[in-house]
């Protein structure tokens, strides 16, 4: 794994309106690593993710995706930054009126001039990558939750992004399906060289896939700790980290 920074989050104040949920947050994500953002409910994980994927501007600071500013730069710079990544949402967010193949084809139709047979082949290959090639003609309503998440990953991969943002990928999945999804993430990282940024609080998935993580903290409105998940679990630097990784209740 090279040590090249692919995402730079620099002194970002995250939040909505006038009140930041997180202040002065800085970290980097390196190429071809699985990077996890952790924290308890309401600590600002999803808010930070929304800033990183360009949905909401941060209250301060800047976010660089492969050197391009997602906010605060030119429209061309933002467009370039947006083309570097794909996103999958908690529910999969597939379009219910389209088959899986049509769902994956959609970004290719909009952003490329490929002929129809080429688009269909590319989409079919993306579905093959996530193990859903034989379900290409199914509608999202006809497949399970785990399959929906895999199909959403296939759709996010359609334009060959360098980075994939995953919001709670294992949430609501049984342990076997979650493990399959973890394996898929690692396989895509190894075969396609994709960088993953995963927002999660599923500890089993975290230890299985994440190379590095940051843990956000609600009381201090910042990053409590940064490092390898196993190291943080085995040598927690503070009580809050130990409590999180060992699922301990706070002392009365």
């Amino acid at each position: 794994m090279t040590e090249e920074n692919i995402i730079n989050v620099e002194q970002v104040d995250a939040g909505y309106g006038a009140f930041p949920i997180l202040e002065n947050v800085s970290f980097t994500v390196q190429r071809s690593e699985v990077f996890a953002i952790l924290g308890g409910s309401g600590c600002g994980k999803s808010t930070l993710l929304k800033h990183m994927i360009g949905l909401n501007p941060p209250l301060g600071g800047q976010i660089l995706i492969m050197g391009d500013r997602i906010f605060g730069g030119t429209a061309e710079e933002r467009e370039r930054a947006m083309r570097h990544f794909g996103v999958t949402y908690q529910s999969g967010a597939l379009f219910g009126s389209m088959t899986l193949l049509e769902n994956v084809c959609l970004p290719l139709e909009v952003f490329t001039d490929l002929p129809r047979d080429a688009r269909l082949l590319v989409a079919s290959m993306k579905l093959d990558l996530v193990g859903l090639k034989n379900f290409a003609s199914y509608f999202p309503a006809d497949i399970s939750g785990g399959m929906k998440k895999r199909a959403a990953i296939a759709r996010a991969l359609a334009l060959d992004p360098k980075i994939l943002f995953l919001d709670e990928p294992s949430a609501g999945l049984d342990p076997i399906t979650a493990a399959e999804l973890d394996r898929l993430i690692l396989r895509l990282r190894d075969t396609q060289g994709i960088t993953f940024v995963v927002v999660t609080h599923e500890l089993a998935s975290l230890f299985a896939i994440a190379d590095r993580c940051i843990m956000l903290d609600k009381p201090t409105r910042g990053i409590l700790v940064e490092g390898r998940p196993a190291d943080l679990r085995d040598h927690p630097p503070c009580a809050a980290v130990r409590a999180f990784f060992n699922r301990e209740l706070p002392h009365e």
Binding site: T99, R116, D117, M125, A136, S137
Partner: peptide
């Protein structure tokens, strides 16, 4: 596994 035309899988 790609012998079949992907278009034929579309319902």
């Amino acid at each position: 596994s790609f012998a079949e035309d992907p278009a034929s899988t579309n319902p």
